[in-house]
Design a binder for these strands. Structure first.
Length: 175
DNA sequence: AGAGCGATGGCCT
DNA sequence: GGCCATCGCTCTA
């Protein structure tokens, strides 16, 4: 399916890593011809996982402290991915709280760097496929009210409405 | 070899 | 709302 559709249909699905489970409530799509996408200027060592098969994890390091988690969505060599921006914690909440150093449920996974820390995802997961592994995606219920709007934290491609979130979720990073 | 930067988060006002 | 820590990678020379 096209990356935009995948970004929408991932809402309501579950991201699982070991004993931690979170429901995906916020995503962003990054396309090959999108100036905000890491793949826009071609393949480099940093972004090469983004050019892998659909279903590959793309984990990158940002701002000196944080990692972000993406799911690669297109054919090999076509660099497209969906950034997971927020989760509703479902299982393994105690472990998430320990990893994050906070007890505020709404603040555990409300942001791309936060959810990576809470779920225990690491740079070792970069380039791994997400099928039948410790780190994987499972289908959830179909979601009704999806909000589509502009993406957050970028300087290029800001006009593209490629961010999606579940309207009534308390766990999105920002309204 | 070195400057500049980035799909963030936490703390401060 | 603003500031800034912090670091790997890319770009330029």
């Amino acid at each position: 399916a096209p990356t935009i559709s995948i970004a929408k249909s991932l809402l309501g699905c579950y991201l699982i890593n070991g004993k931690c489970v979170g429901k995906i409530v916020e995503t962003e799509a990054y396309l090959f011809d999108d100036p905000a996408s890491h793949s826009f200027k071609g393949k480099t060592k940093r972004n090469e996982a983004m050019f892998g098969e659909a279903g590959t994890a793309y984990v990158y390091f940002i701002y000196g402290n944080h990692y972000c988690f993406n799911i690669v969505t297109n054919k090999k060599e076509i660099g497209e991915a969906v950034l997971i921006r927020a989760l509703e914690p479902v299982e393994g909440i105690k472990l998430m709280k320990n990893r994050r150093g906070t007890y505020d449920l709404k603040n555990l996974c409300a942001g791309p760097g936060k959810l990576v820390e809470a779920m225990g995802i690491s740079k070792e997961d970069n380039g791994k496929d997400l099928l039948n592994r410790k780190l994987r995606i499972e289908k959830g219920r179909k979601v009704k009210n999806i909000v589509q709007c502009e993406r957050i934290g970028i300087t290029k491609g800001t006009e593209l409405p490629h961010r999606f979130y579940i309207e009534d979720s308390e766990f999105v990073s920002k309204r």
